[in-house]
Simulated scan of single mutants.
Amino acid sequence: MTETVTDPNPEQTALMAAKVRRMMLIAGLTTGLGIAAVFIAIGYRLFKSEGSAPIADLTATLPRGAKIVATGISGDRLVVTLEIGGTTEIRTFDARTLKPAGRLKFASEP
């Protein structure tokens, strides 16, 4: 059992070259799209980053007789627990801008 290998004729050579060229074009385009996606993601993160917030110099005023019981940070919020005249109040502030975000008062039932 011997097989004879013949050289491909010019038509077959041109057909194989066209297929290889098409596969290389597809591989090149896929690679180019992947690289472009990476650069787009990097650019998006660079231009959309908030960076460091400016340093805020603020003075918060408390009601007369109020006492700070506890402070804490939860995510991007600063939480301050106050005791005002026997009742407890929780005030939240945006940690970046220090603007008030909410207030929660606790009262005893009569």
Rank of each mutant, 00 (worst) to 15 (best):
Y44F: 06
Y44C: 07
Y44N: 02
Y44I: 02
R45H: 02
R45D: 05
R45K: 09
L46F: 07
L46K: 06
L46Q: 07
F47K: 08
K48G: 08
K48D: 03
S49K: 12
S49G: 09
E50N: 07
G51Y: 05
S52Q: 10
S52V: 10
A53W: 04
P54R: 11
I55D: 14
A56Q: 15
A56G: 10
D57V: 15
D57T: 12
D57S: 15
L58Y: 09
L58Q: 14
T59W: 11
T59I: 14
A60M: 13
T61R: 15
T61V: 09
T61Y: 11
T61A: 12
L62D: 03
P63E: 09
R64I: 11
R64E: 13
G65K: 09
A66R: 06
K67M: 11
K67L: 14
K67R: 15
V69R: 03
V69F: 01
V69P: 02
A70K: 13
A70R: 13
T71L: 08
T71N: 02
T71A: 09
G72Y: 04
G72T: 00
G72V: 02
I73V: 15
I73S: 12
I73M: 13
I73P: 01
G75M: 08
G75F: 04
D76Y: 05
R77Y: 01
R77G: 06
R77W: 03
R77I: 00
R77M: 05
L78A: 05
L78K: 00
L78H: 02
L78G: 01
T81E: 01
L82Q: 00
E83M: 05
E83R: 01
I84Q: 03
I84K: 09
I84N: 04
G85V: 05
G85C: 04
G86C: 06
